[in-house]
């Protein structure tokens, strides 16, 4: 499979455990960055990078991860495209924004809008890009071992 270098070392238990612990935390961080982006540093691009990094870590640890970047890319492209053209259906200009604001118990005043949907598309595309790059860099043999059930 590989043309140069030594065969990749077997994934270590310690790394696997660490990645297993980090995954939910990182996803939470990504969600936080996504929602805080409206008023604080963060946003879709940052959230996408965090998720992408987690995917990379799982790749290294030989753990399962969504192996279809094309799906992310397609979904993201559809979401951003639809947010762009949807206002036209109501006779509003291209990319017109809708801001929603309502009171939610515990959280208080929540403000969101179509910009968040657009940002979600950005997240999906960034995740797709990162996974595609890492996959292209040669994670295939790591993943092959996962598929073959020999990862542990």
């Amino acid at each position: 499979m590989t043309t140069t270098g030594a065969p990749p070392p077997p994934p270590s238990r310690a790394i696997e455990l660490a990645v297993r612990t980090v995954t939910p935390v990182a996803l939470l961080v990504a969600a936080f960055l996504f929602f805080s982006g409206h008023n604080q540093p963060g946003g879709g691009f940052a959230a996408g990078l965090v998720i992408g990094a987690v995917m990379g870590l799982r790749m290294i640890a030989g753990m399962p991860f969504p192996r279809n970047p094309g799906l992310f890319l397609a979904a993201g492209a559809v979401v951003v495209g639809l947010t762009a053209v949807a206002p036209l259906l109501w006779g509003d200009p291209f990319f017109d924004q809708v801001v929603l604001e309502w009171d939610v118990p515990i959280l208080g005043k929540v403000k969101t809008g179509s910009a968040a949907v657009f940002d979600l598309g950005v997240v999906l595309i960034v995740v797709g890009l990162v996974v595609a790059v890492l996959d292209g860099l040669g994670a295939d043999d790591l993943a092959d071992r996962v598929d073959a059930g020999t990862a542990r």
Partner: peptide
């Protein structure tokens, strides 16, 4: 945009 983060409002709105 209804947001205080100018950078992100520029980006997404």
């Amino acid at each position: 945009g209804g947001g205080n983060n100018v950078v992100n409002v520029i980006l997404t709105d």
